[in-house]
Design a binder for these strands. Sequence first.
RNA 1: CGGGGCGUAGCUUAGCCCGGUAGAGCGCCUGCUUCGGGAGCAGGAGGUCGGAGGUUCGAAUCCUCUCGCCCCGACCA
Length: 490
Amino acid sequence: MADDKKLTTRTEDFSAWYNELVLRSELADYSPVKGSMVIRPNGYGIWERMQRTLDDMFKATGHQNAYFPLFIPQSFLSKEAQHVEGFAPETAVVTHGGGKVLEEPLVVRPTSETIIYHMFAKWTQSYRDLPIKINQWANVVRWEMRTRLFLRTLEFLWQEGHTAHATEAEAETEARLILGLYREFMEGWIAMPVITGQKTESEKFAGALRTYSCEAMMQDNKALQAGTSHNLGQNFAKAFELQFQAENGEQAFAWNTSWGVSTRMVGGLVMTHSDDNGLVCPPRLAPIEVVIVPIWKSDEERARVVEAAQKVRIELTEWTGRGATDRLRVTVDDREGVKPGAKYYEWEMRGVPLRLEIGPKDLEKGSVFSARRDMRAKAALPMAGLPATVATLLETIQGDLLAAAKARREANSHRNVTSYAQFKEIMEGPGGFVYTGWNGDPAIEAKVKEETKATIRVIPDPEFRSAEAPRTCLVTGEPAKHEVIWAKAY
RNA sequence: CGGGGCGUAGCUUAGCCCGGUAGAGCGCCUGCUUCGGGAGCAGGAGGUCGGAGGUUCGAAUCCUCUCGCCCCGACCA
């Protein structure tokens, strides 16, 4: 009975823990259609904050939002060979409309490269029309066989950026710029440290020249690909005749990039920080940063503490120390008939970063009692100057979450692994990120995947590479072409 | 698609083997007492037992078919 209230613990069953947490914290719920889900206000609130932050970043770097339609002519998907090969198996196709069989079936977009570059082609004549830098917030559908709340569902929400440039160098700069923005967002807001780098041929986006990605480590030591940015080269430009007249008068194909992050990041947030008591949400993304729980015995006390709690809420929300538009997000839980302890558990499950308790004793002392969600540390805070104190504390929590996640990742990263036997031992046991040399042969990558389920998550960017580069390939012992990071992945 | 679970009240489930008026806990509603870590008492509402067929005097229970969901594997943000 008391056990009903507790989550399955992470060590018992990580997967069950995750599912129960997502449902119990009311981030999402299963919808009647297998593999799809409803994002509830608590989860959508996090997504809205993600959207707002990223949207500002995109606009600050010269991108504009637009919207392209859900339905794509089936023939469009086929125009880029690798693209159709990659996505055809997982598309939903509309064959009927208005009670009639359609002349050409419509594909529900699994991603929008085809329709967008078709339109870009229409809008581009001269190099003066470039670059085009567009972003859209949309839903996409990929008919996955195996689904998981937030991490892989039939339909999900994301943003997809699409750009067209006159030169390869410019496209490359763009793809890299966005990768940097993603990293900044994931570390600064989700407090989820990521490793950036390039995907191998077998893991790159269908139709891309190169794919860059942000890889995070979850608490079960598995990797989560949290965002990707692609240099598409001229592959789509050629398929969709996206050409322009260059300064020298010659016709040339444009260079494209595309990049996206999705509601999957909410799953990453959950699996990076949360504990056996429920969600731990980083303050910057928390729909509610502070919950105030008034504590009373008598009706007379109730009136006093609730009034005091509301005054504190107003003082906090009216404070402009973080800027006029970035107010503290505070709620008061003054429900009657629910004991304070029950409220604590409930808000902890929902991931609210900071709880303030206000009871008669606190009023006497001119203080409020605080409890941090992340480490469950408690302290009295003086009422005087409370907004600034709270804001600072929230930033401290934000920073501590990132530091803790980074420490966990490093503690579960293995460098200097040169023996394949040792590699297998790690993958069969604790898992984690394993840095090794690789001869660059896709066949070796496939063999390791077959034997261990681990894949090359990324060829890391220089700052993540080991101080001393591995000299030999993990499997063959041949000279290493790259240092790579292996892990089992979501 | 292969393997494993499971469909009984909003949730978790007992009952099924061995057929005989559908039970409990949590949650919900009302009232009183409570309230600094998951409250107590009293009263109350809530079920075509996933669906269809069959066997039977009688089916949640036995038989056949079917639908759906979850988990684990082969594809993927």
